[in-house]
Simulated scan of single mutants.
Amino acid sequence: MGTKKAHLLGAMEDRVGRILAANGGTLFLDEIGNLPMHLQAKLLAVLAQREVTPVGANKATPFNVRILAATNMPLTQLRDERRFRQDLLFRLNTVELNLPALRQRQEDILPIANMYLADYARKYAKDGIRLSPSLQDAFNAYSWPGNIRELKHAIERAVILCSGEELSLDDFQLQAVSPHINTPSAHVAEAGNHTADIMNDAATSTPPQQPAGGAGEQFNLEDIEKQTISKALKAYRYNISHAAKALGLTRAALYRRMEKHGL
């Protein structure tokens, strides 16, 4: 009687796991501080033994990788044994590099922005697109609470939705996050779902002035959000996964906003 090879979960072909795929190279572990405790124990065992047993296999396979781990969690929190295994931290923290927030290295903002702009211009067939001088000033003045991820998603969204060859401040939502965009020292609080709240100026006694040259421009965030989501959905032919990624949202967050706006 012949033997049959068992496949798990209906898989019809073998697939190499991430660790074995990185064998001989570098394995990048992003947001390591968010790893649950039970998975921390498994990761520690794998790193200590330097071998992994693929799903469905009966024999462990040795591997040799360089581990690069990243987190935005303060080191003081990682040193709390209630949140992170200290034996795993000691194994990972051989060489520590501290990368300052993007707002603290202003000279990197425009080179990074132009790199992503070139990438997305090729991806969406919009070669020749560029940042306007006023937008470059705004980028340098903005505090980028979401750091490079926020900059990356902002560039991609603008490239998708723009219709000209020059991106301007109107193609971004930076003013919705920071009303004092031209004040470099202005502090901006990060919004976890990438949708920022406008500071409430209703308590001030001075009535708002009409923006120069913007008599017919709309500043209602609800309307802007609805239009942006609608454009993204149309650009991706209502592919929720792709539209959510372009908007910097999760699928669940995008569905909630679609329901809110009746889209």
Score class of each variant (00 low, 15 high):
R256P: 00
A158L: 02
A45I: 00
F63A: 01
K123Y: 08
N98A: 10
A22T: 07
L254P: 02
I198T: 14
E225R: 14
F219N: 01
S241N: 10
S205A: 13
R251W: 04
T3C: 06
I181W: 09
T71G: 07
T183N: 15
A243W: 00
A232S: 08
K59I: 12
L233W: 00
A118E: 12
Q104N: 15
Y124W: 05
R122V: 07
C162D: 04
D14Q: 13
V177M: 15
P133R: 11
N93T: 00
E217R: 15
E51M: 06
E259T: 04
Q218L: 13
V55Q: 04
S178W: 11
Y116E: 03
I67R: 04
P145D: 02
D170T: 05
K152P: 02
R122K: 13
F139A: 01
L99P: 07
A191Y: 03
E81G: 04
A189N: 15
R251I: 09
D171V: 02
Y142D: 01
A41L: 01
Y116I: 08
I160F: 08
F90E: 14
G128V: 07
N64I: 02
L92R: 05
T76C: 03
V177P: 08
A113N: 04
G164P: 06
A21M: 14
V159Y: 01
I129C: 08
T250R: 09
L131F: 13
A186L: 10
I109M: 06
A212E: 15
A48I: 01
N193W: 06
M258T: 02
L35F: 07
A11F: 10
L117H: 04
T71L: 05
T61N: 11
A243K: 00
T76H: 00
G56C: 05
P100L: 06
A101M: 04
R105P: 09
I67F: 06
F90T: 10
A196V: 15
E107P: 07
T228Q: 13
E217Y: 15
G24W: 01
E150M: 08
A189F: 12
H7C: 15
S230E: 14
A191C: 08
R130L: 10
A253V: 01
E225L: 11
N34Q: 08
A158E: 04
G214N: 14
V159S: 02
G164N: 08
Q77L: 13
K231L: 09
